[in-house]
Structures are given as C-alpha cells and as structure tokens.
Amino acid sequence: MSHAAITEVVMAVTNASGVSLSLNDRMIAGFLSLFIGAFLVFGAGLANSSVLHDTAHDVRHSFGFPCH
C-alpha cells in the first residue's frame, strides 16, 4: 500500500468516527479501555474472592453471570 493510500485510510478512519484521535491514539485508548473494562467486569462478575462474590452477589445473579 502506498503512503498516500495509507494516509487516506487513516483520514477516513479518523473522519468516520468524529473523534479527533489519531489512529495510533485511538488504538491505545481502545485497548486500554478494553483492558480496564474487562478487569472491572471480571472483578465484579467472575473473580475468585468470597468478599467480591458476596458484595456483588445480587448483581452477579441479575446480570446472569454464572454464580454459585
């Protein structure tokens, strides 16, 4: 892919979203966001800790996380 084509793709991607992040920043933000989000959901929904389980008990059931 030529340099011009890459630039075009990057611009298209940036414009399509309407968020003024560069492609690189977008990927960093995206994966950081996915990582932190997965960590939080894991902690509240699935983690191996009786304290976390008890605190989140009703939430685990009502979100349909496998529980008990």
Binding site: S17, F31, L34, L40
Partner: peptide
C-alpha cells in the same frame, strides 16, 4: 457501578478499535 463502568469501557474500547 463497577460492572456498568466495566461494560461502558468495553463498549467504548470496541468502538475505538
């Protein structure tokens, strides 16, 4: 709140990626 923030971040992350 934690689960909501977590799913919110997952949604935003998927949107960004």
């Amino acid at each position: 709140l934690v689960t909501g923030a977590g799913f919110g971040l997952l949604l935003a992350g998927l949107g960004l990626v």
